[in-house]
Design a protein around this nucleic acid. Sequence first.
DNA 1: ATTTTCTCCTGCATGC
DNA 2: TGCATGCAGGAGAAAA
Length: 276
Amino acid sequence: MPELPEVETTCRGIQPALAGKAVTDVIVRESRLRWPVPKNLRKNLIGQTITDVTRRGKYLLLKTATGHVIIHLGMSGSLRTVDASTAPRLHDHVDIVLDSGTCLRLHDPRRFGAVLWTDDDPARHKLLVALGPEPVASDSSDKVFDGDYLFSKSRGRRRAVREFVMDSHIVVGIGNIYASEALFGAGIDPRRAAGGISRMRYQRLVVSIQKTLTSAIAAGGTTLRDFSNADGRPGYFQQTLKVYGRDGENCRHCSAKIRRVRQAGRSAYFCPRCQR
DNA sequence: ATTTTCTCCTGCATGC
DNA sequence: TGCATGCAGGAGAAAA
């Protein structure tokens, strides 16, 4: 499942093959993704040169002179650059063919992903306009993400802290796996109300989130080569995870049994001794 | 206004 | 072996 590190890895991985190349064709084999692939995508994109490939949260943005393609990988999506003559596999839904002879191919079995087009500044797009700050700032102009920010945003909120940090309107890019991992790193019980957590503990949480994501991005970088082939989980997951998916196993820190609880329909994993 | 639930979908593990 | 069932999850939309 693409978490922020994988989206970042994808962004870096496809950038060299796309930047400066012109689009010669757009092939939509299956338009029923999360939202229908817009009918005008092909017309708008053909003939345009992709000038930049960037990321905002888990949204990938392909820039052209007349607009942007917005891509989200959902749960099961992956992007690969392949030779345009490569036969598509099952669930290869969209191709963006370039004048270099390669094509960007979206593979997405569960079809939770999206391919959209916007003429406007993508930052003003409905899906992006209300997004929270990036957890790991790429440059100093980004909105600030720190303990004070989370502390002030959380006042008066009763929802569980884990759901709070997974809300992309609070901060982008923290999925189910890294929410559990980061809370473990900060020693915070995922079930606690967001509004009841101290400023100091939020400062610890921010450090833990950044540490978790940064090392995952670094690990994503090391698996970059086979990432384009992989459509499952990358290798670094199993080795690095401290609590996620370890229900009933021993905590690596204190040996207590890791617990799993359902939260908003999803599983949260935590160590009842290390996390309070 | 905030929080919870529902929804989209396929693949895989489990159980009879 | 085959079928039904349940779970996994990002995040918007609808409901509460």
